[in-house]
């Protein structure tokens, strides 16, 4: 969700070649899996090509799981991202984690697959906690749900 804008990305310094994840006070989490390279606490991590919100990996969750005490929205929007680890494109589901207040760490916005709200399934401006018991937004994940055969 959210357009907290590439501002968020620029401010974080989360661009290729920078030292660390670009977020002051956030420890790095370098992947040990060469097929899934990068730091899930960095806005530059490959799965986040269409993410918009606080990175759950900085909030007690991971790139693909929610922090304790929240719940994952069952409906969301999807995009496709290129994995530099294997050169393949993956379909990524940007499930929001819901039920507690904004995490507030690692704000990241990228819009590589984003379309306007008229195509909601491809839009990250919508609060995708709308399908949950509580629409209160905490953070965003990036879950691999398929290989992009297109």
């Amino acid at each position: 969700m959210f357009p907290l804008l590439p501002i968020a990305r620029a401010a974080s310094g989360g661009v290729a070649g920078d030292q660390g994840n670009g977020f002051d006070g956030v420890a790095e989490q370098q992947s040990s899996n060469p097929l899934d390279p990068g730091d899930p606490t960095s806005c530059d991590y490959w799965r986040y090509c269409g993410i918009d919100g606080f990175l759950c990996a900085c909030c007690g969750g991971t790139s693909h799981s929610c922090p304790p005490g929240t719940h994952m929205s069952p409906i969301t929007w999807v995009g496709t991202c290129l994995n530099p680890g294997d050169g393949k494109r993956y379909v990524i589901s940007y499930n929001d984690c819901c039920g507690t207040n904004s995490c507030g760490r690692c704000l990241c916005n990228r819009n590589e697959s984003d379309k306007p709200m008229v195509r909601p399934q491809a839009n990250n401006d919508i609060n995708w906690c709308l399908g949950s018991d509580s629409v209160t937004y905490n953070c965003s994940t990036a879950v691999i749900i398929a290989h992009d055969e297109g």
Partner: peptide, 8 residues
Amino acid sequence: RDGDHKSG
């Protein structure tokens, strides 16, 4: 570039 449409 493509994907910059919300970048300001």
